[in-house]
Design a protein around this nucleic acid. Sequence first.
DNA 1: TAATTTCCTTACACCATTTGTAAGTGTTTT
DNA 2: AAAACACTTACAAATGGTGTAAGGAAATTA
Lengths: 221, 221
Amino acid sequence: MATITIVEDDSFMREELTDILLKAGYNVIAISDFQDVVTPIVANPPDLVLLDINLPGLSGFDICRSLKSKGIRPILILTSRDKLQDELHGLQLGADDYLTKPCNRDRLLARIQNLLRRFEGQPDLLEGSNFTLDPNTFTLYKGDQSLLLSANEGKILKALVQHKSEMVSKSTLSEHLWGTNQYIDENALQVNITRLRKTLRKLDLDDQIETIRGQGYRLRG
Amino acid sequence: MATITIVEDDSFMREELTDILLKAGYNVIAISDFQDVVTPIVANPPDLVLLDINLPGLSGFDICRSLKSKGIRPILILTSRDKLQDELHGLQLGADDYLTKPCNRDRLLARIQNLLRRFEGQPDLLEGSNFTLDPNTFTLYKGDQSLLLSANEGKILKALVQHKSEMVSKSTLSEHLWGTNQYIDENALQVNITRLRKTLRKLDLDDQIETIRGQGYRLRG
DNA sequence: TAATTTCCTTACACCATTTGTAAGTGTTTT
DNA sequence: AAAACACTTACAAATGGTGTAAGGAAATTA
């Protein structure tokens, strides 16, 4: 069974987490000395690290990246601040998922299960019918060629690929581009579609995006 | 012992590779049906894939990315074309290393050993004393902040971090920036150093780069 | 067919970023 | 004090991304 290391300074929280995980059948190592968190973890690499980002006097973010640079993954971040910013920063690199405290038991276990499953082999490439998209860097691949999409192109194509072969409404695409209900001229979307099509053509990807009149767009394949 | 899957259409080559790997103590699965390469590999994921990029009628690059999107890694590419371009493309995403045919036995085994060691946990973040650098995306991390460096800034910092606390000569840095012996005004390097320092200061990283008069620069720490 | 709606494309202007050059100032060494 | 070296600032050019506008193309409807 998988081993999970807990890094959490609040002793009550730490024991509760330990209890939950033990009962769920995981091996648990709880760190209680915060002088040097990284080396003991590296010395005995677990299958997952549960990391409180708010440690007294320490930067959880630095610990997170330090662990990752040593190959320790996945890392699930615990945070009491429920500000979106921090979560994004945590995910931006190093962390693989986050959770806000106080956390529901089932939710916690679900996330952990998810990460463990996912990290038996890590994917994170989206496959179209004729191409592959890295949704993080917006790099487009086909055969031995590759291409960096612009932000707008990437957002559109990502949305389309995620709804593989299903129609994506214009308003949905607008949200992906400019956020919810930030209304921009509808033509702006059209222009960006045109530009994406043009870019796709550079890799001989013609006729990938089908337009559904009055509704939205759809990826062919 | 680790399992290695071989994808190679030339039967002579395939048997030779199989032989070498078996004698080295690996479990070997050799694919001989090239109708659908990906699914059998996904069904039985090996610890490493040895992939000939020149398959008749197939795009080895597509296979490569398809495998990676399914979480199959590492992938070591075999190529008979010794063009640098292809190798770079192979590495750009999906492949984790490459090898040109015909290949030396010891070299092959060394590469494989390397990859297997590396992929027990994958790092690829460079750690400075106060910061972390992703040398691929040139993203700079410190605490909960991050920052995208420009190409020049990234190249310089990468070179400095790689020679942690050792001096890096101006000519070496020039090579990292503009390639070997492409002489550009020495002042250009100074300017780029200034810019990097300024950027570092945005994350409160002051006095990171020490100048060694008449010689070059050095990372403090 | 004609009118209307919807979509596509091109050109334009604006902005932000990156970068080498140049010139002047500061600092160290001799 | 002079020379050598390093630092900084400003400038201009190039590049790329973006929304807007306007006109043409295509599909739909009457």
